[in-house]
């Protein structure tokens, strides 16, 4: 019976280890914390795997556990210094600006680093929303359940988060690339 549970866990939950690890990495922004958060989330998931409803979205269920653990354990009281206040962020990187980010033929790694930076500038709840919906392809409803908020909140967080990425990375679009 226990072996069966373990086998089901290996088959249904562990394939999402990489996805959870990557969300944990971008939530905590520290490798050591991401390792700890991922392991702990899976360990807790295993201990209550008998409460997981077969046939429902296991990845979304794992994110629910991960996010709750993240909020409980990694929320620091003080505000993060390099988070952009949302009422300003839309205007931050000016259209057609000539700042250091504007490079005519950017290397792929540099682009990736700038996307990560733009993401990291978002307040945590907005980052979580865009990670779950756009990167991990959860539905609004699944993301709302995982983050413990109404669907309408996911909708507005996603709106601001996407606008922030678009504004922050506008120079790349102008210079060389139009993502679909």
């Amino acid at each position: 019976m226990t072996d069966d549970l373990r086998a089901r866990f290996e088959a249904e939950a562990l394939p999402h280890f990489r996805a959870v690890f990557n969300v944990a990495r971008r939530l905590t922004r520290r490798d050591e914390d991401a390792h700890d958060l991922t392991q702990e989330a899976f360990f807790r998931a295993y201990r209550k795997f008998d409460t997981f409803a077969p046939g429902t979205n296991c990845k979304a269920w794992l994110f629910t556990i991960t996010y709750s653990l993240f909020v409980n354990r990694y929320h620091r009281d003080r505000r993060d210094p390099h988070v952009v206040p949302l009422d300003q962020h839309d205007e931050v990187p000016g259209r057609g600006s000539t700042d250091a980010r504007h490079v005519p033929t950017p290397a792929r790694a540099a682009v990736a680093a700038d996307v990560e930076t733009a993401l990291a500038e978002l307040p945590e709840e907005y980052r979580a929303a865009i990670l779950l919906v756009d990167v991990e392809e959860l539905s609004y409803e699944e993301a709302a359940a995982a983050l413990g908020c109404p669907v309408g909140t996911i909708r507005s967080r996603l709106f601001r988060a996407r606008k922030h990425l678009a504004a922050s990375l506008r120079d790349y679009d102008m210079a060389h690339r139009r993502p679909r």
């Binding site: 971008r26 682009v111 990736a112 996307v115 990560e116 733009a118 993401l119 865009i130 990670l131 756009d134 990167v135 988060a161 996407r162 606008k163 922030h164 990425l165 678009a166 990375l169 679009d173 139009r178 993502p179 679909r180």
Partner: peptide, 10 residues
């Protein structure tokens, strides 16, 4: 574009 950056750029 914001959605595309998140989908393809991370």
């Amino acid at each position: 574009r914001g959605r595309a950056w998140a989908r393809d750029g991370l």
